[in-house]
Design a binder for these strands. Structure first.
Lengths: 251, 251
DNA sequence: CGCAGAAGTTCCATTGTATGGAAATCGAAT
DNA sequence: ATTCGATTTCCATACAATGGAACTTCTGCG
């Protein structure tokens, strides 16, 4: 493998520094985050503005992501066979069972939703979220993914989680390992990392991709009851998606 | 202005080569589009894969945009004050008038939807599209934008359109100039670049941004009837968005 | 009104590294 | 096996990216 292009790496790292909550960043802040000199960051941000990936607030306050990133996302979504096939099936399940259904992929040490269909009584609130990041180590989505990857990569991710979680790591590790066993035995695992929300996830992978599929409900019920009720629909959804994909590929 | 960073420019240009319909691109094709040597492209794509912006299809067939671009889009959307303010107002108008409502920004020589709320009888089809690109020179959105920019920039864009449209350019130019007058006189302009769809757009700008707002309907009616019916709602929507924004900024 | 401070940009010599041609490798189809 | 196409690696060269320092701009405060 050839050495990577440093300028490009740095430029992309600058783009990736923008997140919900850090939507307006100045050169100084970017320089600090990326460990670069102000001069370098200044030139990189100028280039990114020139390419239409960033726009600067008028008063030199800082930079924001520009609309062009939306069209990259659009291109990615419209080119994803999995998403095209899965979305209608996910929507149908969400409607019929009145639950949330999500599809996510790993990005570094987090999971990113390709699609998250939120069921809600109010039709207007049934919004679809994509691009949202959730922690890999805490979520059912992330653990389902961890169950599918080679041990080497899993170890590397564990190191990141450990650095992030500090003293809570050992108990978290036990939880994760338990989830991995669950996935291997029953095909899916449950987690509740946010109050009142229980989620159940299963890996969705083939030679081409490695995603996670989940369902979730806002409920006061115990986890076990949710697992009982949703395991079969989730696994059936997975089966339906894989079947549709193989049919499509065969054409 | 310092010279731009060439490697970064090229890397971003590679990302931007991915579009709906060109979702799987190999190094050769990328090299041709960007006018680069295959060796250079090979290294840049490797870097982009390493940064999680591209993923390669297993059989070396080519590269695709990776899920990370979705989270860039998510960050951009959640950080956009205009979009946060406008979206609910747009949705309300779409529901009450049974029309499509869109918000778009310029990206180079095209318009990119920040949000497009498609009204449809079937609730399940009221999907929201963002990131879709439409031609600037043909759409009401694009012409509303053209009406707001400095003549120098407009001239530069005209040159691009002319190169693209060839012999049709002179009549198209007349149409565009007519639309610009419309925008200046009545605040908005109409266009119908797709059969059966009439759209009406108005600029939505301030010191910070320069967007376009539109409404559209699928209809057999004449353009004039649509203009008559929708001009007032569109301009009122624009007013409501600008008012909410100034209130928010004042806090 | 002007000054002080912070943030950003430009300058410049140095160094590193990105580049493209050519060769080697890989994979696929025959 | 063999060949063809595409991709990656190699390598010397030259270009361009870099970071420290100087300079400019903007902001807030005295």
């Amino acid at each position: 493998m050839s050495p990577a292009n440093r300028s490009l790496e740095r430029g992309i790292e600058i783009l990736r520094a923008f997140r919900p909550g850090s939507d307006l960043l100045g050169n100084g802040e970017l320089a600090e985050r990326a460990g670069l000199s102000k001069a370098t960051v200044s030139r990189l941000t100028q280039t990114l503005v020139g390419m239409g990936m960033l726009q600067q607030e008028p008063l030199r306050k800082g930079y924001r992501l520009a609309p062009a990133v939306l069209s990259l996302a659009h291109a990615m979504r419209s080119g994803s066979a999995v998403l095209q096939v899965a979305a209608p099936l996910m929507r149908a399940l969400a409607e019929s069972k009145h639950i949330n259904v999500g599809l996510a992929a790993a990005d570094r040490d987090e999971m990113v939703y390709l699609e998250s269909i939120r069921y809600s009584r109010r039709v207007a609130f049934r919004n679809v979220v994509s691009g949202q990041r959730v922690p890999m180590e805490l979520t059912s989505l992330g653990r389902a993914y961890l169950a599918t990857i080679p041990p080497t990569r899993r170890k590397a991710l564990y190191a990141i989680f450990k650095a992030r979680r500090g003293r809570q790591w050992s108990s978290l590790l036990a939880e994760i390992e338990q989830s991995l066993r669950c996935v291997r035995e029953s095909g899916c695992c449950a987690a509740s990392w946010q109050p009142e929300v229980v989620a159940l996830a299963t890996p969705l992978q083939s030679a081409d991709f490695s995603y996670s599929l989940n369902v979730s409900v806002s409920t006061g019920e115990k986890i076990e009851a949710v697992v009982e009720a949703l395991t079969t629909p989730l696994l059936e959804l997975r089966g339906a998606i894989l079947k549709s994909l193989s049919l499509r590929a065969g054409e």
